[in-house]
């Protein structure tokens, strides 16, 4: 495994650049995590106060059906939504990069635009779209005499959330792929053209391998994003309170534990367990993503 950085004498010089980031990082990430681990070893009750309970909270989390069913839900979300979103993002990035689109910069701006919409606003808009009584869904049903299912019902809600996420983040991922594609040296294409390679061949032989790193990273961050699913369900909850339960996703569960139930200790435990699971999966994906070259 080649280390591509300059093989200088190992020194502390690099820390002068990395240091400022790590200091702030320690304050806003590491310290709260350490504090959470500390919290997870205690239990505070409304009556009886705080006591040290060792690993009891972890034991409870590992046998908590709410936690596992929420994990199952985001896993399902992960294996369906993330591939769809990344696939669309990749297609669009390739299309824009191919230079064969009319008005490609317009496409680039517009498809990225949803990422700029605040979650509150996105929920308002999609809430309207999904409305089965007076919303767009109702209008479509009226107009065409269809009876499309209620997208806010328990059986459809995960798909509806997936749609919002896809809408929000396709452009974001597209931009990452696109900027990775832009770093491919033109000389590679020229030699491919001399070999008589077609557009499709150029994609599979040059473009995809070249942006593999970006693909792996986008996947890892999407996995983390799916496991931390929170904003969209929490806002849609106001419209579909029965479909989106308080333990709908692990993150929502942890949030409600601490904010509705003041179970700060158990909430911290759930967060830590979830963090470990996410890390393991991200690590596995990263290993697999880089091994098959």
């Amino acid at each position: 495994m080649a280390e591509l950085a300059v093989r200088r004498r190992r020194s502390w010089t690099g820390w002068r650049f990395v240091g400022p980031f790590m200091v702030v990082f320690a304050l806003v990430f590491l310290a709260p995590i350490a504090y959470s681990i500390y919290l997870s070893l205690f239990k505070t009750r409304l009556i009886g106060g705080t006591s040290f309970v060792g690993l009891d909270n972890y034991q409870q989390a590992l046998t908590d059906p709410s936690f596992w069913s929420s994990l199952g839900r985001v896993s399902l979300f992960l294996v369906v939504q993330v591939p769809i979103m990344l696939f669309i993002a990749l297609l669009v990035a390739l299309a824009i990069d191919s230079g064969r689109l009319h008005g490609s910069s317009f496409f680039r701006v517009t498809i990225f635009l949803p990422y700029a919409v605040p979650a509150v606003v996105a929920a308002l808009m999609w809430g309207f779209m999904y409305g089965s009584q007076f919303g767009l869904l109702a209008s479509i049903n009226d107009q065409f005499g269809w009876s499309l299912p209620d997208l806010l019902s328990p059986s459809w809600i995960l798909a509806s959330i997936g749609n919002i996420n896809t809408w929000e983040f396709t452009g974001y991922n597209m931009l990452i792929f696109y900027s990775a594609l832009r770093t491919i040296p033109g000389s590679l294409y020229e030699s491919a053209e001399i070999d008589g390679a077609g557009e499709f061949r150029k994609i599979t032989a040059i473009k995809l391998p070249a942006i593999r790193g970006a693909l792996v990273v986008a996947t890892i961050f999407s996995i983390i994003g799916s496991f931390q699913l929170f904003n969209e369900p929490s806002i849609l909850q106001q419209l579909a309170p029965n479909a989106i339960t308080t333990d709908f996703t692990p993150n929502l569960y942890a949030y409600n534990l601490s904010f509705s139930g003041q179970q700060y200790n158990y909430s911290a435990t759930v967060a830590i367990v979830m963090g470990i699971i996410t890390m393991v999966i991200a690590y596995v994906v990263q290993l697999r993503g880089t091994k098959e070259r």
Partner: peptide
């Protein structure tokens, strides 16, 4: 099936 306080 409309939730109170929603725009619907």
């Amino acid at each position: 099936p409309i939730t109170s306080w929603s725009d619907q």
